[in-house]
Computed example of a mutant assay.
Amino acid sequence: MPRVLDAERNVLEIEDKISGDILEVHYRMPENSQRVRYSNALTVRKGGKVKIAKDIFTIQAGFGFELLTGIKKGDFVIGGRAFASEPGDPDFDPKWKEHVRAGASDVLAYLARTVFGAVDKPSDGVEFEDLETPEEDFSLDATGDVEAAAPEATADPLSGR
């Protein structure tokens, strides 16, 4: 699927484990200067050292707030009422963005991590596959004890034998 460079609306679907729903947020692509600010906010280079910011989550949530342009109506509720981000909608709330920041900063941080980290190198050819049957049985025994059901160790794993 190609990257659409002139999209009217960028949409990110996020699996929200709190609500159990898929949330839809709308965002704008960051400008290059904003990409530089994001990178510089996460790490500071001083001499031969690189220092990592202490509160990465807050930085990510702040940049996500800057990118956020809308939400799908009904994905967020405040005071028992769903609200919308579209000005023409009867349920439009002019404070919709502030509501999202106050109650769903995790969504904003995820948005920033996804958009600013959207490019990566191709995989090194390492493939993962699900095992149909694990090599060891880690099921519970009749007493509910995992250790009793696990096979006996034949050597001390720290000894190298």
Rank of each mutant, 00 (worst) to 15 (best):
M1C: 07
P2N: 13
R3Y: 15
R3E: 15
R3K: 14
R3S: 14
V4D: 15
V4F: 15
D6E: 14
E8K: 13
R9A: 15
N10E: 13
N10P: 11
E13M: 12
E13P: 15
I14T: 04
D16T: 07
K17H: 12
K17Y: 13
G20S: 09
G20Q: 05
D21G: 07
H26N: 11
M29E: 12
M29G: 02
P30E: 07
N32K: 10
R35F: 01
V36F: 06
Y38H: 11
L42P: 15
V44R: 08
R45N: 02
R45F: 02
K46R: 09
K46L: 09
K46Y: 10
G47M: 02
G48I: 00
G48T: 01
G48R: 05
K49W: 01
K49S: 08
I56L: 11
I56D: 15
F57C: 05
Q60H: 13
G62N: 15
E66A: 10
E66W: 10
L68P: 14
T69M: 11
T69F: 07
I71P: 05
K72Q: 14
G74T: 12
D75H: 12
I78E: 15
G79M: 10
G80A: 07
G80H: 08
R81C: 11
R81L: 11
A82E: 12
F83A: 08
E86C: 06
P87I: 01
D91Y: 06
D93S: 08
D93R: 06
K95Q: 12
K95T: 12
E98R: 02
H99Y: 09
H99S: 09
V100H: 00
V100Q: 01
R101S: 10
R101Y: 12
G103K: 04
S105W: 00
V107I: 12
A109L: 04
A112C: 05
R113W: 09
T114K: 15
T114F: 07
V115M: 09
S123M: 03
D124Q: 10
D124T: 05
G125S: 03
G125D: 01
V126M: 09
V126E: 04
D130G: 07
D130F: 13
E132D: 10
E135K: 06
E136C: 07
E136T: 11
E136A: 11
F138W: 10
F138V: 03
L140P: 03
D141Y: 03
D141W: 00
D141C: 08
T143W: 02
D145H: 04
V146T: 03
E147Y: 01
A149V: 00
P151M: 02
E152G: 00
E152C: 00
E152P: 05
E152D: 09
A153T: 05
T154W: 09
S159T: 00
